[in-house]
């Protein structure tokens, strides 16, 4: 369990996100502490993905997306940063649709290190092997590191995307329904890795599997219709100590 004395990694104040006139998130307040796994559960269209997009400023890629409120990363407002790329390099993201870049598997995972200026082959080799192993992909691709990442199977591309995010050595790792294209056994392996990674980074885990949140998250937030219904210690949510009846209904599978 994460102590309340851990420093705050990410502070969300009164966050509202709109697409055109439609609000995807409205008035959300949250704080996420260092070295915790923070789960976000909720039905489709609850605003979970938009929430992640706002954190690493993906709203810049979408002229429709409007963000209001404050997002403080290490105490700095991400919308007032001078170097947005430095922010993104510290945040790893994995979205449900896997993207293997059209370069070799090796280059996919070495890319982030190369962007940071690491050129030495031995060092790159080490990073590639470590990240692919953690993403439970190493055994499958170690003999064909030169195949195109974009030609791997969907599940492999998903793990490649995770490996790439890990290769950033991020301070914050955001996973959005990462297990959607991955088989249950591999999902379990990755979940074990996430538990280990907690000592190195902060993790936000958006998931549609409530049991996954229960297995992994220290605290969990329940999102519904663009609002954050409640945030609580995960065990509390799952042992009927919820404040809001809607949360209990969702956790117990009565809707969603």
């Amino acid at each position: 369990m994460v102590s309340d004395t851990n420093p705050v990694k990410l502070e969300i104040q009164n966050l509202t996100i709109r697409y055109g006139g439609q609000a995807a998130i409205s008035g959300v307040n949250l704080s996420i502490r260092e070295h915790e796994i923070f789960g976000i559960i909720g039905p489709a269209n609850a605003g979970k993905t938009s929430f992640l997009k706002a954190i690493n400023r993906m709203d810049m890629f979408d002229s429709n997306m409007r963000v209001e409120g404050n997002i403080l990363f290490n105490g700095q407002d991400v919308r007032k940063l001078r170097n947005i790329y430095a922010l993104r390099s510290r945040i790893g993201v994995v979205f449900p649709l896997p993207v293997g870049l059209p370069m070799s598997v090796y280059d996919n995972v070495a890319l982030s290190a190369r962007l940071r200026g690491i050129k030495e082959r031995a060092e790159l080799d080490l990073i590639v092997e470590r990240c692919l192993t953690r993403a439970a992909l190493w055994d499958e691709v170690k003999d064909r590191l030169d195949t195109l990442g974009s030609l791997l199977s969907g599940g492999q591309q998903q793990r490649l995307t995770i490996a790439r995010a890990l290769s950033q050595e991020p301070e914050l790792l955001m996973l959005d329904e990462f297990s959607i294209a991955v088989d249950p056994v591999t999902t379990m392996r990755i979940e074990d890795v996430l538990k280990e990674l907690k000592s190195e980074m902060t993790i936000i885990l958006v998931t549609n599997l409530v049991q996954q949140a229960r297995r992994l998250a220290d605290r969990t937030a329940f999102f519904l219709d663009g609002g954050c219904v409640e945030v609580a210690q995960t065990e509390a949510l799952f042992t009927q100590q919820t404040r809001d009846p809607r949360t209990r209904d969702y956790v117990e599978g009565r809707f969603g």
Partner: peptide
């Protein structure tokens, strides 16, 4: 140690511009 350099414009930023 990385935190100190956080949000500094680096060479890559200037190259991009």
């Amino acid at each position: 140690s990385r935190n100190h350099a956080f949000d500094q414009r680096n060479l890559d930023w200037y190259i991009d511009k």
